[in-house]
Structure formats: structure tokens, C-alpha cells
Design a protein around this nucleic acid. Sequence first.
DNA 1: CATTTGACGCTCT
DNA 2: TAGAGCGCCAAAT
Length: 98
Amino acid sequence: MARIPHGRLATYGQIADLIGAFGCARRVGWALRRLKLPSTIPWHRVVNTQGRISMSLSREGSDWIQRDLLIAEGIPVDAEGRLPLRQFLWHPDAHAGD
DNA sequence: CATTTGACGCTCT
DNA sequence: TAGAGCGCCAAAT
């Protein structure tokens, strides 16, 4: 997840696939949930495949913090949490160096 | 030990 | 394009 470039987005499934946990997108979200903020890793660059921030009451506002952080990185986010995923989606194997 | 839940994703309508 | 249903698996209860 730390490999995600500034101003780029990745999906939960993408991260799961990247670490070999194919199809285990929910577990990525589970891991992020128990993340303590602030964190050194760019957790805010991870959204769902629908191109939306996963809003949840259990996040206690971290979802809105995520929206703010993304906007700060130049990614326009809708009031409903929707964003142009296709345009900012990160391609992990683009450089194939890591 | 049985159930419910969750920062997901795919398929069908 | 939007909404509903189902599978997924570890944690929490």
C-alpha cells in the first residue's frame, strides 16, 4: 500500500491481489479498520472498486478524513464519496520494479 | 461452539 | 445507472 504513488488510487481488491490474497478484499478493509491514526502508510488512497469511499458509521469520521485527504492530493471527491477512479487508478505492474 | 458483522466485489435485474 | 443478493473469512460476541 505504501507503494501507491501520490495522487493515485488503488482498490481493496487490488491490494489483496498484490499480496497474494486473491479475492480477499474484505480482509484488506478489515486490516485498515484496526489501523491506528495517524498512520505512515497512505491508507486514504485505497477505495472500493466502485470508485467510492467506503462510508461507515463505525469509522467514526475517518471516511470523511479520507475524502479530505484525497481532495488535498488533487482528486475531486463527490459529496457522496464518489471519485473518478478510472482516471487516477494506480497500475502496480506499470514499472514492474518492486 | 453458533451467529453476526464488516473500510469488498461480482452477478443479475 | 442503481439496487439487491450472495460468497468470502477472520473477529467479535
